[in-house]
Each structure stands twice: as structure tokens, then as C-alpha cells.
Design a binder for these strands. Structure first.
Lengths: 191, 191, 191, 191
DNA sequence: TATGAATGAGACTTCATTCAT
DNA sequence: TATGAATGAAGTCTCATTCAT
């Protein structure tokens, strides 16, 4: 059952995604949800809190998408592919949310900014550890784990753009494999 | 000679970088520039126009930094390294500008958003063409040029973060070589 | 039998007394009455009307307390004492109502303000006539009846404060006699 | 020179006095001051702060009016008369301020309420001490100082009403003497 | 040219009141 | 009759922009 609260969240995602936090008016969101302006305040205490809830729920959703917990015995390539594919899926299925999470960070509120930044760091930390471990195990060559993390994070951070802004509709699994191949093997011809 | 106009641009960069577009007040900028609030309007017609000028000037500056025109006879690796090093230099020397150009994109104004998006596409187009050509010439293996562009664009798009937010002070040339190596050769051990 | 209407009035007294008219929310009153917000409107047409009813009922109650009708044959001192004692009782037994009637007059509504002001004038008129008559009869010396009324009205108007705000728990009858003594004989030593 | 700040305070006094705190709109005050709505905020940070400043300035003004510092060698009767006359003057010359200070206390803000209540207590404390001392010196008979304070405070607290609401224009000095006489000698004929 | 006091449109939020259940 | 979710009018406050000096 879709509760009114969910309808408001949905409308919030749509409007925040289209207009950004500061240009989104509470009235816009109310109209998008087909309700009165005051009703939003029955469910959320403020514009900021509504946005925070959207961010949090979005991030939870995202984390499910890119979770690799069940695949912990896989090799590094498989894991990178899984994460990439999950990210790809998420961007394709939650275009508006992607835009909010990956772009319109803006400086809305210091606390929120810090929260979001820390979430990002945390995620990167996990990835970096994974890289480091794979280097130790010999699965990867002696590279700078920080830079590799930056590279993988970067490519993921860009993917939403062609998907959301240009309607790119690639097949997630195979594209993720291609990206993984690039990351693993680079772009020079094998000798 | 530093004109008053330049002082305002400088102050704008500082304040927009610190607070983001919407939280930056014209008064803040005036104070930072050491002038009166009204004076800004002698040189810029509006807050948005001031921001646009900063973006444009910033992008011009950036393009000089990453320009590879004088090195058109170089191989693809050298070019990627040059672009990366230029990007790195730019982020290190213009931290505030970097933050504005690479993060706080927000949805300030549709026209500006489109303009910025197109600049980005343009830049990516050049890179993509370069990749494609290098594939044709056999310098690179048969990879998806779009994905490679995404990867290079992504890594560059991320670099400002550790530099600006965490004060990372790596040496530009050698780090750019490391990144180039990652892009070119991937991360698996060479057999 | 305590009707639901009475429960609402009771709750209104409590909440209006604690928070004042403007800070009292209909929801607060509903909660205090243990009913739903909408139910208040089954018995009272608006917040203002509820307040008016409370004022009116409060004033009726007050008038009973200070009524001296049954004691019309008494002398002026006895009457002043009776009124004072009645007032004292009222403040002690209906602290919340006292606060509403004697303090939180605020300018809620012009009509209500006028109504309340007239009630007061009316009461003072009766007192003033009584004074005047007592002067004529020689029971009181040649004083300005208006000023005496002001004095007696003033002292009564203040009494609620120590009682309600500071929990002063004096014995009504004897205190009323002391006050009457002050009014009658002043404060200088008798020669 | 009348500053704009003073104009706003003046307008605030007028509007708060006429409509009470909650019914006074910032726009009303702006219109009364002949300025734009936003201008008020150049001088006062909020509606509440404007009101507080009015209260404080009003109370300062009032305290000057009723100050008896220069007359400390006078007897108790003279002092009561001076205070009463000062109060009378104040009510006559600052009708709107009187209304704000002596009536529309409402429950605007807990802090303000407490502040005002304490000011009142403080003033009463001084008066009560004076009474007590005069009893000790034999100038007054053995009366309850608290009740006398209540009486004097009460009469003063009422005086604004006929002056402000009914336009009573008595002569301050002589009226103050009459009131003092009532307080000192009571209302019964001297035997 | 430079200023900053003044402005008012605009956005968030509150809460008395309504009405479908 | 009783309810409380929904509403939207209304009010405070912000800040980009103007303009008289």
C-alpha cells in the first residue's frame, strides 16, 4: 500500500531532482503529490528534514543495489563488476534519485553535507581496503590503492550522467563487465 | 594591475566556493572584496551573471591548464598524462575554483546548467575522438571509446576532492604518470 | 453529571490559563479534554467563542463569589470585607480562571474587549454608587468616590498575583478584614 | 534628531498598543512608520526583539518618572505622593506605552514574561521595604507591609485605565495628593 | 564612480477549521 | 456523535536589487 508519506517522498524526489533543493518549493512538492501544502508538514517537520529523509532512504536503497556481501568469496574482478552493475542498475531504475545523490549535493546544510561526505568516505574506505588486500594476495599488481579507488569511484560517479541526462540505455551486466575489463586490463593492446 | 572587477571576481570565487551559490550573499562577496554592496552592480548585472563570469573565466583558465595543443605529436599516453597533470595542477592551485567548477553545480539556472553541460560534453567529445583515433591507429586496443572517456573523465572529476577537502599534496607530474599507468595498463599483474 | 461540553470548558480554562489565548492550540485543549480536535467544534463554533464562553462563565462564577446582595443591610465596612473575601476565595479556588479573567486580557477581539471592559465598568459603577451613598450617609468622609473605587478595584485586581503566581495561601476572611481595615483607616497611626 | 530607529520604535508603540502583540503585523508597523517592511529588520532582528526593546525603553522611561531618589529625605507620605504623581504623569504623557506596560502583558514569550515579572517584583520589593521601615520608625502603624504594597501597587496599576481608555485628564499633583491621603488616612471620618 | 539604507517579492511554516468516515 | 487527516490563509523573515547621495 502506498501511504501518503510515500507519495510525498516520491513527489519530493521528483521535484528536488528537477529543480534542486533551493529551487524546489514546498508548494511544488505538494502539487506534485496532489495534496495541500500544509499536509507535507503532517509527515515531515521541515523542507530540510524531507530532503534528508530522501537522501537517507535513497542511500539505503543504493547500498542494497551495490551490496556485495553475498559474494564475498568472489575475486576482485567479479566484485568490481558486481558493484558496477549494481550502480548501473540503480542509475537506470532511480534516475531522479541518482541525480539527487550524485550531483545536487550543493551546500544545503553543514550537518547534512558532513553526513553525506562521511558516507562517501566510508564507502571508499571499504573499496580501498579491498584493493589493498587484493594487492597483498597478489591478485593485483603493486598499484596505489588510493588512486585505484579514486578511479573506480570516479567512473561510478560519472555513470549517472549519460543514463539520466542522455537516456543511455545500455545493458547493465555486460557494460559492467566492459568497465571491469578496462579497470583490470587497461587500454593498451596486450603484447 | 588588479582592477576592482578582478577583486570582485576573486571575492566571488572565495565566497561561492565556501558557501555555495545559494548561501553566498552579495553582501558577503562585497565584504570579501572590501567594497560596498552596491559597487558589485557597477560591474556585474546580477548575482547569477557574476557567477556565470566566474564559471566562464574559471573554465577558460582550466582549459589552458589541460590544453594539449602544443603537444599534438605526442602519443596517447603522454597526452593523457599531460591532461591529468594539468588537471592536477589546476586543482592544487585553484582549490576554490575547482570546488565551484567540479562540485557545486547545483541547479542554479537552466541556461547556465545547459551551458556548463555542453562545455563538458564538448571536452569529452574531443577526448573521445582522440581515443577513437588511437584505437584506429592501433595505439589502443579495441575498447569502447565512450566508456574510456567516462573513466578518464570520472577520475579527473574526483581528483579535486582529496586535494581540496583533505589537503592532499601529491606531486602533480608523477601522480599523473601513475594515473596514466593505471588507465593504460590496468591493475592486474602483467603476465 | 459532567457533560463533554463541561470537560472542554475545563480543559480550555487550564490551557488558556497556562499558555494565554494565542499560544493555546485547539489541539492542546482537545488533548487536555481527552477528546478529538474536531469534537470541540461540535460544542463551540470557534476558538474565540470557546474563550468567550469561558470568560462569561468565569465572570458569572466570580459575580456569585463577590455578590453582596444578601447582605444589603450591612455597613460599608462589612460590604467591602465581604467583597474582598469573596474575591479572595475566588482567586484561591479558581486560580486558572483568575489568571484568565484578571490578567490575560490581551487584545483578542474588539468586541470581547469591549464586553469585558463594560462588565468591569458596570461592577465599578455599583461600587462607586455604594461609596457615594455612604459618604452621603456620613458613614464615610468626603472623599472622591472615583478614587476610592479605583483603590478598591486596584487592590482586588492585584490579589490574584501572589495567590496564583507565588502560591500565597492566606486565610481569606481575616485577610479580607485586614485589607478592609487598611482601606477604612489608612496606614498612619491613629492619633 | 529623530532617527529611523526611533521612528520604528514609535510606530511599534502605537501599533502594539492598539492591536496587542499578536495582532500587530510587522507590515502594520512598517506602514505606521512610513517605511518598507524589510526596513524594520535593518534595526531589529525580530518582532519579539522590537517588542522587548519597547518594553525595556518604556520601563526605563517609567522608572525615571517614578524615581524618588532625589527625595530620599522626605517622609513616607511625600514619597507615596511623588511616586503616584510620577505614575500619573507617565500614564498621561505615554498613553500607548502605559497600555503596553500595564495591560497587554500576555504570554508572548516565557523569558520576557519572567523578565517583566521580576522587574515588577523588584519594584514592589523596594516599596515594601520602604513601608516596613516607616513602620519601624513609627511613621506608620503596625500594618501588613505586603498588603500595603499590594494596595499601592494596585491603585497605580489601575490608574492608566481611566486616563487611557476614558481620557480622564485630572491634574497629576493634586490627584496624587488625594490618593496619598486615601492611602494614609483611609476613608472613615476622623473621629 | 561608490555606497549602503531601503525595499518588497517570495518562501517557509503554523494552526484554526473543515469534512469524509 | 466523534474523529483527525487535510487544508490554505496568513504572517515572519531573507536577501537580491535599487537609487539617492
Amino acid at each position: 500500500m502506498v501511504t501518503k508519506r510515500d507519495m510525498i517522498l516520491e513527489a519530493g524526489i521528483k521535484v528536488f531532482s528537477q529543480k534542486g533543493y533551493h529551487h524546489a518549493k514546498m508548494e511544488d512538492i505538494a502539487v506534485a503529490a496532489g495534496i495541500g501544502k500544509g499536509t507535507i508538514y503532517e509527515y515531515f517537520s521541515s523542507k530540510l528534514q524531507l530532503f534528508q529523509e530522501i537522501m537517507e532512504a535513497g542511500l539505503r536503497q543504493y547500498q542494497e543495489s551495490v551490496s556485495t556481501e553475498k559474494i564475498s568469496q568472489m575475486g576482485i574482478a567479479e566484485r568490481i563488476q558486481k558493484i558496477t552493475a549494481g550502480h548501473f542498475y540503480f542509475c537506470q531504475n532511480y534516475k531522479e534519485l541518482s541525480r539527487i545523490l550524485f550531483w545536487d549535493t550543493d551546500i544545503i546544510d553543514d550537518e547534512l553535507k558532513d553526513w553525506f561526505y562521511n558516507k562517501r568516505k566510508e564507502k571508499e574506505g571499504v573499496l580501498e581496503d579491498l584493493i589493498r588486500e587484493s594487492i597483498r594476495s597478489g591478485e593485483l599488481r603493486e598499484v596505489d590503492a588510493k588512486l585505484v579507488t579514486l578511479m573506480i569511484g570516479g567512473i561510478l560517479g560519472q555513470i549517472w550522467m549519460p543514463i539520466v541526462l542522455e537516456g543511455w540505455e545500455a545493458e547493465a551486466e555486460s557494460t559492467a563487465w566492459q568497465i571491469t575489463d578496462l579497470i583490470m586490463n587497461g587500454i593498451v593492446p596486450s603484447t
